[in-house]
């Protein structure tokens, strides 16, 4: 089963909830947590995994064999991203505009082009002390596109990725995958949601929280996924989240009040359940609700 924790607005406590769920679920299931926020992965900061593997993520970029190239210009003509320029009798390739579609290679009448892998990020993986298998995607600085890293993370682990007996754990227990989504409501969020069974939407009762929640709910409904809402920092504002959720038929599964003590503990990088163990039963109930809700 695959759960996604998403939010729309950044900083509403997605990672706080995702890590609390993972820690609770790890008591019953074989849990793997995918940190899909490749521009700012944070789950590891509070779960302290022992990284045991690092896999480089690449995307293909075209290269030109100057001895075969006739500078006919076909490649630049078909490229929709202006990543190629044919001038002065040769081809210039702009890697950061290239989407790696391979069209230029295919179209070249002289077979003068081939592709080479360009490193754009990496996937780190390892077990946390709670026995959670955590994997995070990490986009390289200066690289514009996170999608290849996210796609690779979703396909992970590859055969060589981990020596740990992941498949054994899988057969011993039911496998639960939790994906910590990036903020926003664009492509990477959709990619994170694809193939999931249920969604937990973490929001806060501010005008910003509600505005951005609406955006994600639109996507979740289009994908037809069942969703539960967690209101974090309850009391921080008066935005009518409950009314909106009632309208949309979204159950509010958990409220976490705004407390300075919690904010201080989370700032230090402590997981929620460590700082406030009294939330354990509520998170357990949330998990059971979702698991039985999806099974039903």
């Amino acid at each position: 089963m695959r759960l996604v924790v998403a939010s729309g607005k950044g900083g509403t406590g997605k990672t706080t909830v995702a890590t609390a769920l993972a820690q609770t679920a790890a008591l019953t299931y074989a849990v793997r947590l995918l940190d899909c926020d490749v521009e700012a992965p944070n789950a590891a900061l509070s779960l302290h995994p022992q990284w045991s593997s690092a896999v480089t993520v690449t995307r293909p970029v075209p290269r030109v064999d100057a001895t075969r190239c006739t500078a006919c210009g076909r490649c630049a003509e078909v490229c929709q991203f202006n990543a190629l320029a044919v001038v002065g009798g040769g081809v210039l390739v702009f890697d950061d505009l290239c989407h790696g579609c391979g069209r230029c290679v295919w179209i070249c009448p002289e077979q003068a082009m081939h592709e080479e892998p360009l490193a754009v990020g990496q996937i780190d993986a390892g077990y946390t002390p709670d026995g959670i298998l955590l994997a995070q995607g990490l986009l390289r600085i200066g690289q514009p596109m996170g999608m290849p890293v996210l796609r690779a993370l979703k396909r992970w682990p590859t055969a060589a990725a981990l020596d740990a007996p992941f498949s054994d754990a899988e057969s011993a227990h039911t496998l639960l995958e939790i994906r910590d989504a990036p903020p926003g409501a664009s492509c990477p969020v959709v990619e994170t949601l694809r193939g999931a069974d249920a969604v937990i939407l973490v929001t806060e009762p501010t005008a910003f929280g509600l505005h951005d929640l609406r955006q994600v709910v639109g996507i979740v409904q289009e994908l037809g996924l069942p969703a539960w809402v967690v209101i974090n920092r309850d009391g921080i504002g008066t935005a009518p989240i409950a009314e909106y959720c009632a309208e949309q038929g979204l159950p509010i599964a958990l409220r976490i009040p705004l407390e300075r003590r919690l904010a201080e503990a989370l700032a230090r990088g402590r997981p929620l359940l460590d700082a406030a163990p009294e939330y354990r039963p509520a998170v357990q109930t949330l998990l059971e609700q979702i698991v039985s809700g999806v099974a039903a």
């Binding site: 700012a40 690289q143 514009p144």
Partner: peptide, 10 residues
Amino acid sequence: GPPGIGCPVI
């Protein structure tokens, strides 16, 4: 500006 470090930030 937007959060993150990717295309929109650049």
